[in-house]
Amino acid sequence: MTELSRRHLMAGAAGLGLASQLSAPALAQAFPARPITLVVPWGAGGGTDATARIVGSLMEREFGQPVNVVNRTGGSGVVGHSAIATGAADGYTIGMVTVEITMMHWQGLTQLKHDSYTPLALMNEDPPGVQVSASSPYADLKALADAIRANPGKLKASGTGQGGIWHLALVGWLGAMGLPPTAVPWVPSNGAAPAMQDLAAGGIDIVTCSVPEAKAMLDAGRARSLAIMASARNPQFPNVPTLKEAIGVDYTVGAWRGIAAPKGLPAPIAERFTTVLKKINESKEFTDFMAARGFGVKWADGAGFAKFMAEGDAAMGVAMRAAGLARQA
């Protein structure tokens, strides 16, 4: 074989390689060839940021490529969520989407919806609990529910801002009991921690935030958790019943976090992500980390995540219309 023909052959092989890069299996095998950016729509130091960072560092180990976690804040999550949706659909820009994606479009804040993405995996879900002050006269959820029915509008609840996830959880719960949202007026707060403080200070009566967010105050004996709005009890709080067990109301809701890519991500790359994310979701590092923070681990693959978001979106629409928060039909 002459030098010339060999060079031709190599050029041909290279050409073949280039062509095959577009074919499915090779594409997934070669992926990733450079660092991946993981966009977080919320600020550094919060729960979503921490979850994204642990997922990012485990993904880095699986892929053997750096995964840069980037906080794109602003616009109450809209800016970051749109950065994920408008990124190049080549697998090098992915992001952590949160429950707010099923809420923001109902408020008319953005056109983005759950179907603006290629869902990859659901990683976490935290159901809210119903917390009352330690000195509250209501011993269990039944007593509380009766008090709400007897005196609509008297008890006040808090946990997050107006129209936030925990506000809608309250509205949804009241709706499931057949009560209007005005039965328990919502006091907006800057997150769960200030609400728990106001609960202890006697300013409000109920806080519907996730049980982990209330954990420190529960441990301090300042507050009690009467029930959680989930289908099963939380193993870390085995004494807290579900809504169904407590008052027979079948209502579940939760704040969730998942990984998604821009719409139109090639299927082989999406599958590769889902495989890796499943491994991460089951890894000891991830479950230990989530348990330490008190976060619930949940898993759904791409298709399951898409279905989960669609169902959540519809439920949110009902609750937001009931609360008069929806600006868009």
Partner: peptide
């Protein structure tokens, strides 16, 4: 004024 960046 309809600007996403000002929303936050």
């Amino acid at each position: 004024f309809g600007m996403t960046d000002l929303l936050g």
